[in-house]
Amino acid sequence: MVAALLISGCGYQFAASGDMLPASAQTIYVERFGNQTRVTGINDELMRYIKDEIDLHRRLKVVDSPDAADLELSGEVRFALQTPTNFNSALEPTQYNQSIVLSAMLKDMHDKKTIWSTNNVSSGEHTPVVPQTTVATTPTFLQQNLRADDIANMTDIQTAQSQTASMQDLMMQRLAQHLYAQMADGF
């Protein structure tokens, strides 16, 4: 009981409730984000995740035109990097760290004022790229459409492609979740 009161008193919320969004706002237009990275198309890929996350919360309806929107979300992918972090005895990478950082701004389309902005929404994932470093019992792995035997029979390149795609998907989902939470709850 005391813990519940402390948690509710500190402003912490378990899900983005959208309390900081204008009460009259019903629609949002998500402008194509800019891309300051060397990763072609990462901004377009991210758009799908952002729109899906907004739809998931059912607080706002995503529209296809800024003229039909109460709010406009815009931003820029500022940083995207994939760096090897672990190596085998031949100094070949066995694990990579993927990370992405973006800035974003939410504008009220009726009075043309910025109501929220941030320069640092980020997400990152550690990605095993060889069968020997892939832990087939983690919750992340178990959500994939693979079994431990599948990974054991894959080549290093197949494992790298499979795990990189899976971890990038997870990273983009989490980035969209972080962005929505900050935008909707104002922190």
Rank of each mutant, 00 (worst) to 15 (best):
Glu76Met: 12
Val77Gln: 05
Arg78Pro: 05
Arg78Asp: 12
Phe79His: 14
Ala80Leu: 03
Leu81Ser: 13
Leu81Asn: 10
Leu81Ile: 06
Leu81His: 06
Gln82Cys: 05
Gln82Val: 01
Thr83Asp: 13
Pro84Ile: 01
Thr85Lys: 09
Asn86His: 03
Asn86Asp: 10
Phe87Gly: 09
Phe87Asn: 09
Phe87Gln: 03
Asn88Gln: 04
Ser89Asp: 15
Ala90Leu: 06
Ala90Thr: 11
Leu91Val: 15
Leu91Gln: 15
Glu92Arg: 13
Pro93Trp: 04
Pro93Met: 03
Pro93Glu: 01
Gln95Phe: 03
Gln95Lys: 14
Gln95Gly: 11
Tyr96Pro: 00
Asn97Lys: 11
Asn97His: 13
Asn97Met: 09
Ser99Val: 10
Ile100Asp: 08
Ile100Ala: 11
Ile100Cys: 12
Ile100Tyr: 06
Val101Thr: 00
Ser103Lys: 03
Ser103Glu: 08
Ala104Thr: 02
Ala104Pro: 07
Leu106Met: 08
Lys107Asn: 11
Asp108Tyr: 10
Met109Tyr: 12
Met109Asp: 10
His110Pro: 04
Asp111Asn: 15
Lys112Asn: 15
Thr114Pro: 07
Ile115Glu: 07
Ile115Asn: 05
Trp116Tyr: 07
Trp116Ser: 02
Ser117Cys: 07
Ser117Gly: 01
Ser117Glu: 12
Asn119Val: 08
Val121Leu: 01
Ser122Tyr: 14
Ser122Phe: 14
Ser122Arg: 14
Ser123Trp: 00
Gly124Tyr: 02
Glu125Lys: 02
Pro128Tyr: 02
Pro128Asn: 04
Val129Asp: 06
Pro131Leu: 11
Val135Trp: 11
Ala136Leu: 01
Pro139Asn: 10
Pro139Phe: 07
Pro139His: 07
Thr140Tyr: 09
Thr140Met: 01
Phe141Val: 08
Phe141His: 04
Leu142Lys: 05
Gln143Asn: 15
Gln143Val: 10
Gln144Asn: 10
Gln144Tyr: 09
Asn145Asp: 14
Leu146Ile: 03
Leu146His: 03
Arg147Met: 14
Ala148Phe: 02
Ala148Thr: 05
Asp149His: 11
Asp149Lys: 13
Asp150Met: 08
Ile151Gln: 08
Ile151Asn: 00
Ala152His: 10
Ala152Pro: 08
Asn153Cys: 06
Asn153Ala: 11
Thr155Asp: 08
Thr155Phe: 12
Asp156His: 13
Gln158Gly: 08
Thr159Met: 14
Thr159Ala: 15
Thr159Tyr: 13
Thr159Pro: 12
Ala160Phe: 08
Ala160Asn: 14
Ala160Thr: 02
Ala160Pro: 06
Gln161His: 15
Gln161Phe: 13
Ser162Ala: 12
Ser162Asp: 01
Ser162Leu: 00
Gln163Cys: 10
Gln163Glu: 15
Thr164Ala: 09
Thr164Ile: 10
Ala165His: 03
Ser166Tyr: 01
Ser166Cys: 01
Met167Asn: 07
Met167Ile: 03
Gln168Ser: 03
Gln168Pro: 01
Asp169Met: 01
Leu170Val: 06
Met172Phe: 14
Met172Glu: 12
Met172Arg: 05
Gln173Lys: 13
Gln173His: 11
